[in-house]
Write a protein that binds this DNA or RNA. Structure first.
Length: 423
RNA sequence: GGAGAGAUGGCAGAGUGGUCGAAUGCGGUAGUCUUGAAAACUAUUGUACUCACAAGGUACCGGGGGUUCGAAUCCCUCUCUCUCCGCCA
């Protein structure tokens, strides 16, 4: 969430910056300022009322001690009036605050200057690409390969749970385990501390990273306990630092976590959700960093380079795109998406999203730091990225490495799978 | 699931209606001493809003509500934690 300072500092400039998102935010911005001014006005008159009332209350104590009953009684009635006034003002203040909060929740993060204008993913800017697209004698989609080699059973998943909950079997299951171990080992080598977080979160955590209030429809809910299944490990891991004040030399904080992820994906349908392309439950290794504002873009580049190293090691053809304003997530200032080419479907699949949220999450999380010798706190920057999400990587591995002898396992994975061929 | 106890500042832990933003200890920071360090001593040390990040003011003692002129302290409610019993990987 943006702070009032960010909004009031230069509203017109802000509106211009936000317009990159392909939407006009001028009404919201002006409403925010208006509502905050109203809030301030009410607040200061409430504060003044309370001040008076506090003073009188103190004097009453004094008067009683001195035995001046009559004066005390008079002061009491005076205080009662002030109390009535304070009550009214408090109600007004709460209204204004709630109104302001609603408005602030609707204002997205400010896109970084490098974010290209545009409406859809077609307008995303390709940064670079790598790997070679394999020339296959036969293009077979992964759901057929999964069936042929008995790796993943989508029908069984339907039976046990429903669509989008596949059952991995035999070498299919081992491949999952291998990828998780590989990704975690790589993250460890790159200096990320391994975290194993809860898979269920409370409301406060959902607010902290921005899934709530408006995206609760995308999460599975445990209504009886007011909990949510995590859509990504980003939520519990980033929330480890909710309400934390760091010291400047605590940066950078680097964490990685493997978790299952649960997404309702309401509204998805058709061929995009075929096979592993879009699931309700999937596995992912996430990397999260908390960084000093001066260094967060350097860090973002490092994270992109790190994810790139993963797809390279897996020998997958890939491209990196910078998301355009229309495609950029609500909470993100700059996002790079990784896509790998899946030869059987003849299609690019998004496998990772690496973002800098700047202070947007930190403001909600109340994740701040203090400079040495300074009293003032300021929000830290948060970043995260998938490193990596498994299903589409599996899809591309199966499809791209399919040969007449079977499916070849990339060399880096073999020590984790203990086999080099699926046949 | 049953019974009981509790939730106070970074931590430990006082405080049961006014002088409490809150004793004390530990920790942190700065300084004195020292070649340096330790010890000792001295000072300082929560967050946010208002505001010029001054002074002053306001709020916050798990969350919400109430009683009262006045609440950390009394009442209601919710959440969480701990202990014992039960169940159980």
């Amino acid at each position: 969430m943006l702070t009032l300072n960010q909004i009031k500092n230069n509203p017109e400039e802000l509106i211009k910056k936000l317009s990159v998102r392909n939407k006009d935010f001028s009404q919201l911005i002006h409403d925010a300022i208006k509502t905050d001014n109203k809030r301030k006005e009410i607040q200061s008159s409430l504060d003044a009322t309370l001040e008076q009332s506090n003073k009188i209350a103190k004097s009453i104590g004094q008067l009683f001690k001195e035995g001046k009953q009559a004066e005390a009684g008079k002061a009491k009635s005076e205080a009662a009036e002030l109390k009535e006034k304070a009550k009214e003002l408090t109600a007004k203040l709460n209204d204004a605050k709630a109104e302001l909060q609603t408005i602030l929740f609707e204002i997205p993060n400010i896109p970084h200057p490098s974010v290209p204008a545009g409406k859809t993913d077609a307008d995303n800017a390709e940064i670079r690409a790598g790997g070679t697209i394999p020339k296959l004698s036969k293009k077979v989609p992964h759901w057929e390969l999964a069936d042929t080699y008995d790796l993943i059973d989508f029908e069984l998943g339907n039976k046990i749970t429903g669509a989008g909950f596949p059952v991995y079997k035999g070498k299919g299951a081992k491949l999952q385990r291998a990828l998780i171990a590989f990704f975690l080992d790589e993250a460890d080598k790159a200096g990320f501390t391994e975290i194993m977080p809860p898979l269920v979160i409370n409301e406060a955590s959902g607010f902290g990273t921005g899934q709530l209030p408006d995206k609760e429809g995308q999460m599975y809910q445990v209504t009886e306990d007011k909990l949510f299944l995590i859509p990504t490990a980003e939520v519990p891991v980033t929330n480890l630092y909710r309400d934390v004040i760091l010291k400047e030399d605590d940066f950078p904080i680097k964490m990685t976590a493997y978790s299952s992820c649960f997404r309702r994906e309401a509204g998805s349908y058709g061929k995009d959700v075929r096979g592993l392309n879009r699931l309700h439950q999937f596995d992912k290794v996430e990397i999260v960093q908390i960084q000093h504002p001066d260094k967060s873009y350097e860090t973002l580049d490092e994270m992109v380079a790190y994810v790139e190293s993963l797809v390279q090691k897996l020998e997958l053809p890939y491209r990196i795109v910078r998301l355009c304003g229309g495609d950029l997530g609500f909470t993100s200032a700059l996002t790079y998406d990784f896509e790998v080419y899946s030869a059987g479907q003849d299609k690019w699949l998004e496998v990772s999203s690496v973002s800098n949220f700047e202070t947007f999450q930190a403001n909600r999380l109340k994740l701040r730091f203090k400079k040495v010798g300074e009293k003032q706190t300021q929000p830290a920057h948060t970043l995260n990225g998938s490193a990596l999400a498994l299903p589409r990587i599996v899809a591309a591995l199966l499809e791209n490495n399919y040969t007449e002898e079977g499916i070849k396992i990339p060399e880096v994975l073999q020590k984790f799978t203990n086999f080099d061929l699926i046949n």
